[in-house]
Design a protein around this nucleic acid. Structure first.
Lengths: 161, 161
DNA sequence: GCGGAAGTACTCGGATACCCACTGTCCGAGTAGGGAGGG
DNA sequence: CCCTCCCTACTCGGACAGTGGGTATCCGAGTACTTCCGC
């Protein structure tokens, strides 16, 4: 079981979009070149973000994407769920109903016990992602990435925005 | 992104194996019939459990599977990781290295910032599963499942063990 | 010189092929139990 | 009657095809800038 690599791309794209001044858009082409990934496919991830109101896309020359909200209003969970969907990673197929000792038309009141435990773990995962915003990411990046790389990257991006 | 349905099957199989007396083995065929799933494919999940020391398989007539440890020594995480693997659900492909502003041979000290956050969430998921043992499941099942169904199921299984 | 309109080039967005992993199935290796035969 | 040996039948274990979602790609719809023309 793996998350799709679009998740990684989407997160990194949101990270760099934080560096954009107000009213400036960054084309998918530039984002793709910056991260070294196929442009056409990356645009699908950006589309997903756009459809969920996390980024805004604009057409025409000087078009592209920018964040739709302030970075502290966008959590990792928003981005991950936009790409991966809100469904739990665990699907309960109700195999307990196949038990030959259970009457055929038995209506279970509660969901399957096993499923409840798995869903709780899934919720713990989501809760962890919900607690990290893009602002938190920016603070961490400021520590991890050397200042000159950060500055050069920002210049490189603005040059092509 | 979905967990494979073998995870669900493995969990339910471990649940019913708790009902077995000491020294009794339950064939994959019976487990498959009980849960209404294809026997040949279910055996793959049981093989995974066997290879990770969670259950023990025996050949020949009256052979089958039984739990390898006491139920309170087997956590949901053990079972899930046996089937799904221990790898994090998030794969970091180090696309930050493709940044044209980073010197080619740059050795990053820390892992990617984004990856660290995703891995932390993954660890939260695992921690939640680590905290639930088969004993806990049994206690919950005793509340959820009517007593007569529980008794009939146990009898049905022992009849074929 | 200035305003407006048409043309152009660039963008996003959805529709279309390819491929790997999960799903499902099969057959062979190995063993434990049962039965037959001999003591 | 009991022990031993052999045979059978049942089990697990690994190797073999089919299919759906993820991956990758293409082309069309739409817009903002630019340029040209008329006033």
């Amino acid at each position: 079981m793996n998350l799709k690599n679009q998740v990684e791309w989407a997160l990194h794209c949101c990270a760099v979009m934080m560096a954009l001044p107000e009213g400036v858009y960054l084309p998918a082409k530039v984002l793709a070149e910056f991260h070294g990934v196929p442009k056409e496919y990356l645009s699908k991830a950006l589309q997903a973000l756009s459809q969920h109101g996390i980024v805004i896309g604009t057409l025409g020359p000087s078009g592209g994407y920018r964040l739709a909200r302030a970075p502290d209003q966008i959590s990792f969970l928003d981005i991950v769920e936009a790409v991966e969907g809100k469904r739990s990673t665990f699907r309960c197929e109700e195999i307990r109903g196949n038990n030959p000792c259970v009457p055929r038309r038995h209506r279970a009141g509660k969901p399957c016990t096993v499923a409840r435990i798995m869903w709780k773990a899934d919720e713990a995962w989501r809760e962890s992602l919900r607690g990290v915003s893009l602002t938190d990411l920016a603070a961490q990046l400021a520590e991890d990435v050397p200042d000159d790389v950060l500055a050069k990257s920002r210049a490189w991006l603005l040059e092509r925005a």
